[in-house]
C-alpha cells in the first residue's frame, strides 16, 4: 500500500514516513504542492496524506484540482485547524477523512487502512484466499488456526496479490509497491520475498507466470 505524504514540516513528514513504513505502508513524501503534482503524475499511489497549509498554497486546492480531474485517490487531510467548519470544508472539497494535529500514528494508520478498504468496497480490513486470512493492521495471517507472521515487504507483496486474486502482477509493479523513492531497490528482492512466502505458505500458493509475473493460485478449497 503506497501512500504519498504531502507535508512541509521536515520532522513531522519524516516521522510519518518512517511510522507508516513501520505499520506496513510504503510511504513517499513531498513538501510542496508542485512536488505533489509531479509525484501524482509519475507514480501510482493508493492513498494520500495531505497537509492543508503548504508553502506554495493550500492542500485543499490540490484536492479540488484532483477531484476536478477525475481522480478518486483516497485522501486523508491533516491540519492544525480542527474546527467543525474546517472539517466540513475539507470533506466537502473531496477529502475521504480528516485528522487534526497532533494525532496518533496508530489511528492515522487505521484510518488509512479503512479508507483504502472503503475504496475497494470491503467491510473488513482483512483479506481471505485459499484458506489464508491476512490482517493489514497486524501484518499477520492465520491458516487452519495457525498464526503466521510476515515481514513488512512479504506482507505488502502478499496483500497486493490477494487483493485481486488471479490477476498477474509484474515484478516492476510489485517493486513499485514495496519501495518509496528514498529506498534503495535491490535486485532479486521480489524473488527473495516470493521465495520466503512460498516457504511459509507452501510452494503452490503463489504461482510464477513465466515472462509476466506472479499471482495467487486458484483456490483449492
Amino acid at each position: 500500500m503506497r501512500i504519498l505524504i504531502v507535508e512541509d514540516d521536515e520532522v513531522l513528514a519524516n516521522g510519518l514516513s518512517v511510522g507508516l513504513r513501520l505499520s506496513g505502508f510504503t510511504a513517499d513524501r513531498v513538501a510542496t504542492l508542485a512536488d505533489a503534482r509531479a509525484a501524482l503524475e509519475t507514480s501510482e499511489f493508493e492513498g494520500m496524506v495531505l497537509d492543508i497549509m503548504l508553502p506554495d498554497g493550500l492542500g485543499l486546492d490540490l484536492l479540488a484540482e484532483m477531484r476536478a480531474g477525475g481522480s478518486a485517490l483516497p485522501v486523508l487531510l491533516l491540519t492544525a485547524r480542527d474546527q467543525v467548519r474546517d472539517r466540513v470544508r475539507g470533506l466537502d472539497a473531496g477529502a475521504d477523512d480528516y485528522l487534526g494535529k497532533p494525532f496518533d500514528l496508530d489511528e492515522l494508520a487505521a484510518r488509512l487502512r479503512a479508507m483504502l478498504r472503503r475504496r475497494e468496497g470491503r467491510a473488513s480490513g482483512g483479506l481471505r484466499w485459499n484458506g489464508l486470512d491476512i490482517d493489514p493492521a497486524t501484518l499477520s495471517g492465520t491458516r487452519d488456526g495457525a498464526a503466521l507472521s510476515f515481514s513488512r515487504h512479504e506482507f505488502a507483496i502478499l496483500h497486493a496479490l490477494m487483493e485481486y486474486p488471479g490477476r498477474v502482477l509484474s515484478r516492476a509493479a510489485l517493486e513499485e509497491r514495496l519501495y518509496g523513492w528514498q529506498e534503495e531497490v535491490e535486485s532479486n528482492t521480489v524473488e527473495v520475498h516470493i521465495h520466503k512466502l512460498r516457504g511459509k505458505l507452501g510452494r503452490g500458493f503463489v504461482e510464477t507466470v513465466r515472462g509476466l509475473g506472479y499471482r495467487v493460485a486458484a483456490e483449492t478449497r
Partner: peptide
C-alpha cells in the same frame, strides 16, 4: 495555533516511531 500544532504533531509522531522502531538507528534518528 497551526504553527505550534505542526511541530507538536511531529514530536508526537516521532515519539511513537521511537516506541515502534525495531532498531537503535531508527530510534536515534
Amino acid at each position: 495555533a497551526h504553527e505550534l500544532k505542526t511541530p507538536l504533531a511531529g514530536v508526537r509522531t516521532q515519539a511513537q516511531v521511537m516506541r515502534m522502531a525495531p532498531d537503535a538507528a531508527t530510534r536515534d534518528a
